[in-house]
Design a protein around this nucleic acid. Structure first.
Lengths: 145, 145
DNA sequence: TCCTCATATGAAGACTTGTTCATATGAGGC
DNA sequence: GCCTCATATGAACAAGTCTTCATATGAGGA
């Protein structure tokens, strides 16, 4: 499986410099469905509102109205977001009377959140990745062009 | 700072059941900007195309055309995505002649990717979070309603 | 039983985002 | 110096997504 191979499965119509490398990466990449699933989970974490909800749930279960209050969002909006999260098995609901208590259900997501929070407080007051990004919205600095 | 407090900073107009808990969560939540930045990074990982690019870069630097070939995307599309990633300091570019070699630049993102890939291959053939989600798109199963 | 409350759901609208086509920039080779 | 190639950029269109308003469902209390 070296560069000598004709790269039968390579996408035609695109130039390739290091065919070896390309083939290796294609091998290493998870299948399409796997990538899509993973991206979907990240996308779930990619909304500030949802992210706050999930971080709130890190400490334990909460009901919808408390989540809304704690995260400063409308209850309907929260319910919609929770529905999405529920559909992806990220959270589960427990019912008690007319209240619904939600909690984190996905160990992977919890791990991601933990890692991220750790990174945040380790990063100090306010110098995160995106701070630098905000400082250079278009021109990256010097590496490009 | 118990439930006895009138919760001066609580969002008005929303019901609260466990005021104590709500206050605690509000304390624990990172500030708005921090949350937004973090969500932005997750959102970056939330696109299948970008996710593939980043996973490809886990193995080392690559040029644009090889990335495009390896990930099965158009070169222009890849360039646009890389521009976004560059703006958020997730990748950096090294120029050599007319080629541009990209590599991962953010340790946090690399960690997230590593954790996720480990989770994927640990999860076995095809039973990820989202597989279950696909099986129950709307009705979650039994916890709700 | 009726009324109220907590949550869930549906539909519509505004907004954001990704892709494509066309073109610009700059480096090498002839 | 000119032409070709790799990448970058801009504009426009398409598609998806979040929020809001209105309403439905079901549980408790009077």
């Amino acid at each position: 499986m070296t560069a000598a191979q004709p790269d039968a499965d390579a996408a035609c119509a695109v130039r390739v410099v290091d065919a070896d490398r390309v083939a290796a990466v294609r091998e290493a990449l998870p299948d399409e469905g796997r990538v899509a699933d993973t991206a979907a989970v990240f996308a779930l974490l990619g909304d500030p509102g949802r992210l706050k909800l999930l971080v709130a749930l890190l400490e334990g279960e909460m009901c919808v109205c408390d989540l809304a209050a704690a995260c400063g969002q409308g209850e309907s909006a929260v319910s919609h977001q929770l529905r999405l999260l529920r559909a992806h098995r990220v959270v589960t609901a427990r019912r008690s009377g007319r209240m619904a208590y939600y909690r984190l259900a996905d160990a992977h997501v919890r791990l991601l959140l933990d890692v991220t929070l750790a990174h945040l407080e380790h990063a100090g007051p306010a110098d995160t990745v995106a701070t630098a990004a905000a400082a250079a919205p278009t021109r990256t600095g010097g590496a490009d062009r």
